[in-house]
Protein backbone atom coordinates (compact mmCIF):
# COMPACT_ATOMS: atom_id res chain seq x y z
CA UNK A 1 0.00 0.00 0.00
CA UNK A 2 1.51 3.32 -0.98
CA UNK A 3 1.44 6.10 1.52
CA UNK A 4 -0.22 9.39 0.71
CA UNK A 5 2.55 11.98 0.41
CA UNK A 6 2.10 14.68 2.96
CA UNK A 7 4.60 17.10 1.45
CA UNK A 8 3.04 19.43 -1.08
CA UNK A 9 4.60 22.01 -3.34
CA UNK A 10 4.12 24.88 -0.91
CA UNK A 11 5.86 22.89 1.85
CA UNK A 12 8.76 22.21 -0.49
CA UNK A 13 8.86 25.88 -1.51
CA UNK A 14 8.98 26.91 2.14
CA UNK A 15 11.89 24.57 2.88
CA UNK A 16 13.74 25.85 -0.15
CA UNK A 17 13.20 29.44 0.95
CA UNK A 18 14.55 28.57 4.40
CA UNK A 19 17.69 27.10 2.85
CA UNK A 20 18.18 30.33 0.91
CA UNK A 21 17.54 32.46 3.96
CA UNK A 22 19.97 30.40 6.04
CA UNK A 23 22.87 29.82 3.67
CA UNK A 24 22.56 31.09 0.13
CA UNK A 25 20.97 34.52 0.61
CA UNK A 26 21.12 35.52 4.29
CA UNK A 27 20.62 39.19 3.42
CA UNK A 28 17.40 38.46 1.54
CA UNK A 29 18.55 40.22 -1.61
CA UNK A 30 18.85 37.39 -4.14
CA UNK A 31 16.12 34.80 -3.62
CA UNK A 32 15.13 32.00 -5.98
CA UNK A 33 12.58 33.57 -8.34
CA UNK A 34 9.93 30.95 -9.22
CA UNK A 35 9.56 30.09 -12.93
CA UNK A 36 7.39 26.94 -12.72
CA UNK A 37 9.40 25.68 -15.69
CA UNK A 38 9.77 21.94 -15.14
CA UNK A 39 11.89 21.63 -18.23
CA UNK A 40 14.55 24.14 -17.42
CA UNK A 41 18.05 22.90 -18.22
CA UNK A 42 20.53 21.64 -15.64
CA UNK A 43 24.20 20.73 -15.71
CA UNK A 44 24.78 19.35 -12.21
CA UNK A 45 22.61 17.60 -9.68
CA UNK A 46 22.57 15.97 -6.27
CA UNK A 47 20.04 13.75 -4.55
CA UNK A 48 19.15 11.82 -1.44
CA UNK A 49 16.90 8.78 -1.41
CA UNK A 50 14.20 8.12 1.13
CA UNK A 51 13.00 4.60 1.83
CA UNK A 52 10.44 3.19 4.22
CA UNK A 53 7.06 4.80 4.81
CA UNK A 54 7.61 6.65 1.53
CA UNK A 55 10.05 5.73 -1.19
CA UNK A 56 11.57 8.26 -3.54
CA UNK A 57 14.21 10.87 -4.14
CA UNK A 58 14.75 14.53 -3.37
CA UNK A 59 16.79 16.11 -6.15
CA UNK A 60 18.67 19.38 -6.48
CA UNK A 61 19.54 20.40 -10.06
CA UNK A 62 21.08 23.56 -11.45
CA UNK A 63 23.51 25.05 -13.90
CA UNK A 64 27.21 24.81 -13.07
CA UNK A 65 27.34 28.56 -12.54
CA UNK A 66 24.56 28.37 -9.93
CA UNK A 67 26.27 25.43 -8.20
CA UNK A 68 29.52 27.35 -8.03
CA UNK A 69 27.74 30.37 -6.61
CA UNK A 70 25.96 28.16 -4.07
CA UNK A 71 29.29 26.75 -2.92
CA UNK A 72 30.80 30.22 -2.66
CA UNK A 73 27.85 31.43 -0.54
CA UNK A 74 27.73 28.27 1.59
CA UNK A 75 31.45 28.16 2.29
CA UNK A 76 32.02 31.94 2.39
CA UNK A 77 34.55 31.84 -0.43
CA UNK A 78 35.31 33.89 -3.48
CA UNK A 79 33.81 32.45 -6.66
CA UNK A 80 37.30 31.89 -8.14
CA UNK A 81 38.39 29.84 -5.12
CA UNK A 82 35.58 27.27 -5.43
CA UNK A 83 36.90 23.81 -6.31
CA UNK A 84 35.02 20.80 -7.72
CA UNK A 85 35.13 19.28 -4.23
CA UNK A 86 33.60 22.43 -2.70
CA UNK A 87 30.81 22.33 -5.26
CA UNK A 88 30.20 18.63 -4.77
CA UNK A 89 30.13 18.90 -0.94
CA UNK A 90 27.78 21.87 -1.05
CA UNK A 91 25.31 20.26 -3.45
CA UNK A 92 25.34 17.08 -1.36
CA UNK A 93 24.58 19.01 1.79
CA UNK A 94 21.80 21.03 0.10
CA UNK A 95 20.08 17.79 -0.99
CA UNK A 96 20.65 16.34 2.47
CA UNK A 97 19.07 19.32 4.25
CA UNK A 98 15.96 19.45 2.06
CA UNK A 99 15.69 15.64 2.07
CA UNK A 100 16.02 15.50 5.85
CA UNK A 101 13.25 18.04 6.26
CA UNK A 102 11.03 16.15 3.81
CA UNK A 103 11.69 12.97 5.79
CA UNK A 104 10.59 14.68 9.01
CA UNK A 105 7.17 15.32 7.47
CA UNK A 106 6.62 11.72 6.39
CA UNK A 107 5.04 9.01 8.54
CA UNK A 108 7.53 7.45 10.97
CA UNK A 109 9.89 4.80 9.67
CA UNK A 110 11.46 6.61 6.74
CA UNK A 111 15.23 6.37 6.20
CA UNK A 112 17.46 8.91 4.50
CA UNK A 113 20.39 7.80 2.32
CA UNK A 114 23.74 9.58 2.08
CA UNK A 115 23.69 12.23 -0.65
CA UNK A 116 24.84 11.44 -4.17
CA UNK A 117 26.30 14.15 -6.35
CA UNK A 118 26.70 14.03 -10.12
CA UNK A 119 28.45 16.94 -11.72
CA UNK A 120 26.58 16.21 -14.94
CA UNK A 121 23.09 16.80 -16.29
CA UNK A 122 20.03 15.48 -14.50
CA UNK A 123 18.22 12.77 -16.39
CA UNK A 124 14.95 11.10 -15.60
CA UNK A 125 16.58 7.79 -16.57
CA UNK A 126 18.48 8.04 -13.31
CA UNK A 127 15.32 7.30 -11.35
CA UNK A 128 13.77 4.13 -12.71
CA UNK A 129 10.09 3.74 -11.84
CA UNK A 130 10.09 7.20 -10.29
CA UNK A 131 7.63 9.92 -11.08
CA UNK A 132 8.06 13.60 -10.32
CA UNK A 133 5.38 14.57 -7.79
CA UNK A 134 6.36 18.12 -6.93
CA UNK A 135 9.07 20.61 -7.53
CA UNK A 136 10.28 24.14 -7.05
CA UNK A 137 11.75 25.62 -10.21
CA UNK A 138 13.33 29.00 -10.40
CA UNK A 139 16.08 31.33 -11.45
CA UNK A 140 18.75 32.36 -8.99
CA UNK A 141 20.62 35.44 -10.15
CA UNK A 142 19.66 34.45 -13.69
CA UNK A 143 20.72 30.80 -13.38
CA UNK A 144 18.32 27.83 -13.31
CA UNK A 145 17.92 25.94 -10.02
CA UNK A 146 15.34 23.34 -9.05
CA UNK A 147 14.48 21.10 -6.12
CA UNK A 148 12.09 18.27 -6.90
CA UNK A 149 10.57 15.19 -5.33
CA UNK A 150 10.30 11.90 -7.17
CA UNK A 151 8.15 9.05 -5.94
CA UNK A 152 9.14 5.48 -6.68
CA UNK A 153 6.17 3.34 -7.55
CA UNK A 154 6.32 0.23 -5.41
CA UNK A 155 4.93 -3.01 -6.75
CA UNK A 156 3.50 -4.30 -3.52
CA UNK A 157 0.02 -2.83 -3.87
CA UNK A 158 -1.57 -6.25 -3.44
CA UNK A 159 -0.43 -6.21 0.19
CA UNK A 160 -2.87 -3.46 1.00
CA UNK A 161 -5.65 -4.64 -1.29
Amino acid sequence: MSVEVEVDESDLAEMVEQVWESYLDPEGVSPLIPTYDENQPSEVHSSVSITGSWTGHVVYASSRAAAKRAAAAFLAMELEEVSEEDMSDTLGELANIVGGNVKAMLPPGAQLSLPQVVLASESSARYPNAQRISGVYGMWEGEPVSISMWQVSTDNKEEGA
Binding site: A76, D89, G92, N96
Partner: peptide, 11 residues
Protein backbone atom coordinates in the same frame (compact mmCIF):
# COMPACT_ATOMS: atom_id res chain seq x y z
CA UNK B 1 30.24 14.09 8.08
CA UNK B 2 29.63 16.96 5.66
CA UNK B 3 32.77 19.01 5.16
CA UNK B 4 30.63 21.89 3.88
CA UNK B 5 28.56 21.94 7.08
CA UNK B 6 31.70 21.70 9.23
CA UNK B 7 33.03 24.77 7.44
CA UNK B 8 29.85 26.73 8.19
CA UNK B 9 29.84 25.74 11.86
CA UNK B 10 33.57 26.36 12.22
CA UNK B 11 33.14 29.83 10.78
Amino acid sequence: DSRAMRMILKR
